[in-house]
Design a protein around this nucleic acid. Sequence first.
DNA 1: CGTCTGATTGTCT
DNA 2: GACAATCAGACGG
Length: 234
Amino acid sequence: MTFNARRLNKEDLDLPCQELAIYLLGKVLVRKLEDDTILKGRIVETESYLGGEDKASHSFNGRRTSSNEPMYMPVGTCYVYFTYGMYHCFNISSRESGAAVLLRALEPFQGVEIMEKFRSNRNKSKQAVRKKIKTSKLCDGPSKLCISFDITKENSNKIDLTDPENDSLWLEDDPDHPDWDRKEMKIVKSARIGINRAEEWNSKPLRFYVLNNESVSKRDKMAEMMIENDENVE
DNA sequence: CGTCTGATTGTCT
DNA sequence: GACAATCAGACGG
């Protein structure tokens, strides 16, 4: 049951990479499957990947291949990247050409049973040993959210999230959802996760997540302390 | 809670 | 041929 959900358009998303990453926190990713099932999750963790100087970005130094092409496409284009031989990562291109926002975690609230099915079907461990995944942990990582939402390079790469003709994947503003109070949302800024090369870019605060949200993939205690201190000052 | 390791394959050099 | 924007499971405190 949701209220006043509004689909986000080009103008909403037309922001520089880092601003878009922050803007997306609290927004809702919606997926409509072939059988019309609707999956929804609130975005609670994002990362910015800039172009040019950003060594951790696939578009570093203007690098342009058939694979990273969506990073150079208009705002709101999906860039799905296949990695580690078995996982996908889901990005949304930003205003600047060659920059995109990686979605790292969602708080699922609709279609949870389907997500559980997608997740456990991937697990190769024996059924008997298989543990039930906590709802808040269904999408607490960039590849886990792709598995839960059945997002692959094949079915979602280069899709325009703002195209009204596209009814399989889009974003919504959902300010009046009963169990979500936007005013309570505090944003933590920390270093990105899983970046090995890229030296000095490792430390830059290009990851953004909602403080105290159970679905965040990895907490940064130091960064969270900074926020607590800021509160005391006010 | 934290740290470590094996799995697995498309993509680029 | 080496690497990768990860994950699940194992093990230690």
